[in-house]
Design a protein around this nucleic acid. Structure first.
Lengths: 206, 206
DNA sequence: ATCTGGTTTAACAATGTTGTCAAACTAAAA
DNA sequence: TTTTAGTTTGACAACATTGTTAAACCAGAT
């Protein structure tokens, strides 16, 4: 079919990016072959090179896209003017539900993080997001006596950990902790949204 | 040199396993080549096959060893008869300091977990460790009023998350949160041992 | 009907990786 | 010294993967 306008080319590009995302996120960069991606997209392998030149280029596009979406979601919440407690509440909500539909993403990110830290740090700097702004919000709330006084950096790390780790470790949680109890992982995580808010907010509100 | 007794063969095997551990843990299974491992060990590549038959076999030995050490450490603490609060305290200690010297391990495990869950679950079952026993300890302490009443499963997940995630996400924490503040990651984690105990125990003691 | 531009394909070369094998090596035993 | 058994090495074949190229294809424009 002729490329009569931009949207058609973009249509194929989208198809490829979607397939590549699935494969890269599941298997990681090195273990993903161009053939696997082509199969997933239902197209000839050579088309991947035609549209994206090389595996490296394709990977970077996919990675940047996924990372940007994650960062942007955080930015929207953190930079908004809502109350700090409400912010934290939403943060838990948005990330757990968001990642629940794509549980391979955390490990995918962590993996690239370990093998190629510069790439990610560059992206992060370009994004302009400053997680430290959250620290200031927290300190302010502590001064006002609305939040218990504790180390704000560790508090932030605690929150991110409790949100992200269970998703990254899905097979571990499901297999080692939930299976004997006959609990479904997704149910557990849905419940977790409520329970984590309860636990975390209780732990910081005097 | 002739293999006059067991220990000599074991010496080379040890050398290989150490090198393979380093390479596999850093780069993951697929991205690690036998050549890379041989270079790390300073030996001829063919020797790897001579001693361990195949890459798969070598990988499984390395992985099982690392996983077993992790599990065993947990078992020692959890199965001991010390007080629950002391148990949790030690758990934080042992895992943060242990993984700090080997920060690539968490992602390595998580990665294998995602791409090959059966392998790990089999290992886990063979180990005989029951993390659920911790749940019973916690419930007992809750009944005695020594620990605040909350969902024990989520509590366990919270603890594991706060311990393991920052180590898995070292470049993220270091690059996105600590770098502006001029804080060294290892210092931060040493401090974290204290701060996390404080935070976690405070959050569960009435 | 032919031309023309982007698109798709099969075939190819280059490279990397794994595992095997036979030959070379080494140090102790006979 | 020669033999012997385990060890080490280089060479090889098989296979997977990547990226290129030239040819085939296709639908609208001329």
């Amino acid at each position: 079919m002729l490329k009569s306008d931009e949207s058609l080319s973009t249509e194929m590009e989208q198809k490829i990016i979607n397939a590549a995302s699935k494969v890269f996120v599941k298997w990681g960069k090195k273990a993903s072959s161009m053939q696997l991606i082509a199969d997933e997209a239902g197209i000839n392998r050579t088309l991947l090179n035609y549209y994206f030149r090389s595996k490296d280029k394709l990977f970077n596009i996919v990675f940047d896209k996924i990372f940007f979406e994650l960062i942007q979601k955080a930015a929207e919440i953190l930079e908004s003017d809502i109350d700090i407690i409400e912010k934290l509440d939403r943060f838990i909500d948005v990330y757990i539900s968001g990642l629940l539909s794509n549980p391979y993403i955390p490990v995918f990110i962590l993996n690239e993080l370990n093998t190629n830290p510069e790439h990610l740090l560059k992206l992060f700097k370009d994004s302009g997001l400053k997680p430290i702004r959250l620290k200031e919000d927290i300190i302010k709330a502590m001064d006002q006596g609305r939040i218990i006084k504790t180390d704000p950096l560790h508090l932030i790390v605690n929150l991110i950990s409790m949100i992200a780790f269970p998703l990254a470790a899905k097979p571990l949680i499901a297999g080692m902790i939930l299976s004997d109890q006959n609990i479904d992982f997704d149910d557990f995580m849905q419940e977790r949204i409520v329970k984590l808010k309860e636990y975390f907010l209780n732990s910081i509100i005097p």
